[in-house]
Amino acid sequence: MNELSIDTLISGFNSNDKLVLSKAISLAESSKREHLELLYNFFDHYLSENQASIIGVSGPPGVGKSTFLDSFISYFLKDKESQVAVLTIDPSSEVSGGSILGDKTRMEKISKLENVFIRPSASQDFLGGVGLSTPEAIKLCELFGFEYIFVESVGVGQSEQLISHLVDCFVLLVNPAGGDELQGIKRGILEMVDVLLVGKSDGELEEKAFQTFTQFQTDLRLVSKKDVQKCLEISSMSEKGFGDLNQSLEAHFKDFNRIDNEKIFSSILFDKLSHFKSSQIKESTEFNKVVDQFSKDSKFLALLNKVSQII
């Protein structure tokens, strides 16, 4: 494929060319100014009616997010032909900057399906769990026409805040670990959760999962601000709880009305920049470099302004 231009992007999206989508996500991952300019230029020009259902799945490393997505999406697609995108974020090494992107190897079943597109991205040291490029990647997938977009992010406190703003339905997956696990999850995070899943409810862990589930149920009732909040026990091995989850998602999206997508999107972008200006968040050399580069650049600031005008 030749160099990307605004025209190739538009025609690629029009003709459903997944390679062009993939290249467009690379633009979002890029630290080069021209790339982001091209991308935002494309956002300016490309209109689409499509509204995807965006589902975020968060939780600590090893809780079973990737396995869950593999298993649940297979289940979910048993009787429909929907187009599904999965975005996953793997942590980059703080030492070398490199990464091993392993999530997709856990998604062996769905990675073979024609109607599922999976893009793992390296976090590039941005908030640990959410990738630098995640907001743009979600938007690209929506513009491209996917009906469902799943986002896997590693939960490390702050990143849940961010991911919950980016998605329409925020799913938190927790270990069947009993009380200790509960202590570790902040009230602020529980408030944002749409569906809470207690995972690995199979074999020896089934009983533990049940205990954890019962505790969470009471807890959720206490903290919840949302009207519909669900708590379920699941197993990615036995598909336990998948039927209920499916119904919960359907119910969630039935009368769902997203606050203006653009609004969220650009506010995230602003968030992203301002967060990094403030010192509250862990220093990130990778991102600071990018921010520095952009904030000195008048052309980009103008672009950003334009995006925020849409609000």
């Binding site: 390679l19 990464s99 190897t105």
Partner: peptide, 23 residues
Amino acid sequence: FDVDIGPLFQTTEEVIKQAMEND
């Protein structure tokens, strides 16, 4: 480097799909 480890036992089609999606 950013390294994607492909699963064992792939067909060439599966490798191509993964390579393209990951660009």
